[in-house]
């Protein structure tokens, strides 16, 4: 599939609609999103703002980059070696290995390594603050994008607390105008906050472990709307993770839940997401909605029809059987 390499307006956004019980797929426009829903449906968005989660770092004589995994105060980061975001993460040089007690210069401040993860030696815990991240960080960049992205370009229109380390991109084009149109149709639009984490690190061991545990918060009012809904539509995989975690545990906390083809969804009936291909963790989650064979056919159709993928790409709307 071809990557959409820069932010695009909702006007040009395409929408591929797939139903679990139907071989046919539908090519639509994102602006026509409301027509797929009925009064009583509840659309749930992730209102997490995207942190400037990438900071310059220097350790053992090597200048590199660190990317936050979650909250700055928790301090888990992935270290990257020399080079820049213009190289694909899997082609980046590995960072020097560090041990507990080593000192990493982060934006010219010495920060000790507090912990090194068993998952990967590049996953370490430092003591950082939200303030210094907001001052010195910049958004995680993508090698397929021809220029550096600004923080404003990786936000959803309704973003609030800065919890995500990469953009919850499914809602990027869900403008206030569309939200209003959905409500006019009788669809409720409510929010959760979910700290969506890194999508890829280039480290095979680490990428296999993604998504790492992420913090989430489902407001009581949102949970009440969801439990009283005709159908629940998650805008983005992070919302599926938050709602299905809330169904299995507390309304707020940290979740390690992974969702794949075998997962029996208990809350979410439909998923609005980007275009994902076999091999991606997001594709695995999609298979909880629509079986793998039908998904693969939908991907082939999207390729033939020229849909675009990645953060600024087109959208998929999947309805599961109930």
């Amino acid at each position: 599939m071809t990557a959409a390499v820069l932010p695009r307006p909702s006007l040009v956004q395409r929408l591929l609609v797939v139903h679990a019980g139907d071989d046919a797929v539908f090519d639509g426009k994102f602006l026509d999103l409301p027509q797929w829903f009925e009064p009583g449906d509840v659309l749930v968005v992730n209102d997490a703002a995207t942190l400037p989660a990438s900071l310059p770092m220097h350790v053992h004589g090597v200048s590199g980059e660190l990317r936050l995994v979650g909250a700055p105060e928790e301090g888990w980061v992935v270290l990257f070696g020399p080079g820049s975001w213009r190289e694909a993460t899997e082609d980046r040089a590995a960072p020097p290995s560090v041990v507990v007690g080593d000192v990493v210069q982060v934006a010219n401040r010495p920060v000790p390594v507090l912990e090194v993860s068993d998952i990967s030696p590049r996953l370490v815990r430092l003591a950082l603050t939200l303030d210094e991240v907001l001052v010195h960080g910049r958004p995680v960049q993508y090698s397929y994008v021809p220029r550096s992205l600004q923080l404003d370009e990786v936000q959803t229109p309704y973003a609030t607390r800065p919890w995500a380390t990469e953009m919850p991109s499914a809602g990027r084009v869900l403008t206030p105008h569309l939200v209003h149109a959905l409500r006019e149709r009788g669809v409720r639009v409510v929010s959760v906050t979910h700290g969506a984490g890194l999508s890829a690190t280039g480290d095979a061991g680490l990428d296999a472990a993604l998504p790492l545990p992420e913090r989430y918060e489902v407001p009581q009012a949102t949970w009440d709307a969801v439990t009283g809904a005709k159908r629940v539509v998650a805008v983005g995989t992070s919302v599926v993770r938050a709602l299905e975690s809330a169904a299995r545990g507390p309304l707020a906390g940290v979740t390690a839940l992974k969702i794949g083809p075998q997962t029996k969804l208990s809350v979410v009936d439909a998923l609005l997401s980007g275009m994902h291909e076999p091999g991606e963790s997001h594709f695995q989650m999609m298979a909880a909605f629509v079986d793998l064979e039908r998904l693969r056919r939908a991907v082939r159709h999207a390729e033939q029809e020229g849909y675009c993928n990645h953060e600024f790409g087109d959208s998929t709307l999947l309805f599961r059987d109930r």
């Binding site: 968005v45 209102d47 703002a49 404003d152 936000q155 959803t156 229109p157 309704y158 973003a159 609030t160 206030p176 939200v179 209003h180 639009v189 929010s191």
Partner: peptide, 10 residues
């Protein structure tokens, strides 16, 4: 305004 009013609209 963009960042604050968008959340207000939601």
């Amino acid at each position: 305004t963009r960042r604050i009013a968008g959340a207000m609209a939601l």
